[in-house]
Nucleic acid binder design. Structure first.
Lengths: 254, 254
DNA sequence: AAATTTGTTCGCTCATGCCGAATCGGACGA
DNA sequence: TCGTCCGATTCGGCATGAGCGAACAAATTT
């Protein structure tokens, strides 16, 4: 889950691992966490006590749960991206207009992260949460962002990329991806046809920033129901592209 | 900002302080953070290196910024509250119907925390972000939650409460507050008439959970423009109360 | 080009993170 | 009511590594 290396300040690393375990296990007691991390109970207990003291973790009874303090940090982190405020309302309208899930994603480091996701009205609307990381090579937002990056940057990102995740339809070879990205660049539009997960089709438009660089991507994501309809091919491209344009204008004016 | 005590695992505490400093200073270099915390540069540098390695902090150039990883943690933390999913759509509609800011708040530990906030269409719509902590005694959501709590719990919370924040209109005496809370309990509705901040008026309804306890509160919050209109007194109470009822029903059915 | 500022590296030392074992405390069941 | 079990908590000690100052490097300014 987290990048492994022998870092200084090991205690911090341990605390972070405890926090992520708290997410994975959906809360739990000292013992559960200790054996999940293969640490001594006493050490985990010390950490938890600290985290509780910091107000980051709350305990009710013998259960420890993640506290809401991170909400503030997370909220701040994403407010650093001007695209969030500029696009939040646009995502609402896009989702309503298309009748499916919509959201925004940005590039952080070498990975594409979901900034905001709104579920569609359909029953099995794809679940995605803000903060989730998306594969760059087999998702619509990933490709939309990748295609708009400078050559060197793109190479960097793809260099240490496993190309492992995704279904069989995902591009096996770099060459294929390079070819596809060229057409993505040309149209400012990227498509994912069940390359990431079965029954999931996505479409995304690149959002460019005032500096000419890429700010992120805005996407639509459908579940299996919408397969047959031709709206995906006919209406959706226009919808996401005009949304992207409006966000770009908002970014410029801000 | 964080509760002070001599905790074990001091390194974790330092890391958390660095993260919060990153918020307060809106990002910065090693030196800035070091002197903000009165720590040696080398120590801060070590911590930052760790945090970057964990993907929690990102550095571009000589600037360190908070990363998006916390978005996931924060998102998870609030998904622990069933009220979030049950009410997110309701807040949208409430905000639209009332034409002002709306949101939800819950009780965590001894403080009331904003779970979700949607800005209203008005220009100076009150800014509040998810994760912000609200004073319990002088805000509408705070009082709405407080009033619905069992006697003992309420006493606990008010015991170590400073009663310091807020404008002059805030209740100076516990007795006054107790009296007000009784009427709040009766109506399931709490009001804040510029007690928290000038030009800010709020109204909140208690949301009760399936277990009969209080799940949280849903609120409307207006800026100065809406002062004169009588909608605040005539329409808003009905709006928030029916919203609260719908959320309660959703919680029961889930 | 000198000076100033800022990030990074390097040893050293003492605080402290981590552990195993003992203790506590509540939740059952007889 | 007592005994048993399970998990959380406390404790003491040791080895580690967090934190510091100082030197170094790199970038920016005068």
């Amino acid at each position: 889950m987290v990048a492994d290396a022998d870092l200084p300040v090991a205690a911090t690393r341990t605390s972070m691992r405890i926090l992520e375990t708290l997410v994975d296990l959906d809360g739990g007691g000292v013992t559960a966490i200790a054996e999940a991390l293969d640490r001594s109970k006493s050490s985990v207990h010390d950490h938890l006590q600290t985290l509780v003291g910091l107000g980051v973790v709350v305990k009710d009874g013998h259960e420890y749960r993640l506290g809401l303090r991170f909400l503030r940090l997370g909220e701040f982190a994403r407010s650093q991206y001007p695209m969030y405020e500029a696009g939040i309302e646009e995502v609402q309208q896009l989702s309503t207009a298309a009748g499916c899930a919509a959201g925004m994603a940005v590039l952080e480091g070498d990975s594409v992260v979901c900034l905001h996701h709104r579920l569609g009205p359909e029953a099995g609307s794809p679940r995605l949460a803000a903060g989730d990381r998306l594969p760059v090579h087999c998702t619509a937002p990933g490709k939309a962002i990748l295609a708009a990056l400078p050559e060197a940057r793109r190479e960097d990102i793809l260099a240490d990329h496993p190309f492992a995740a995704g279904t069989d339809q995902s591009h096996a070879k770099r060459a294929d991806l390079a070819a596809e990205l060229r057409t993505v660049t040309a149209r400012g539009l990227a498509v994912d046809r069940e390359e990431w997960e079965p029954d999931r089709r996505g479409i995304a438009a690149t959002v460019t920033g005032p500096d000419g660089g890429v700010a992120g991507a805005i996407y639509l994501l459908t579940g299996s129901e919408s397969h047959s309809g031709k709206r995906f091919q006919q209406d959706f491209p226009g919808l996401v592209i005009s949304s992207a344009t409006r966000i770009r204008n908002a970014l410029r004016d801000a």
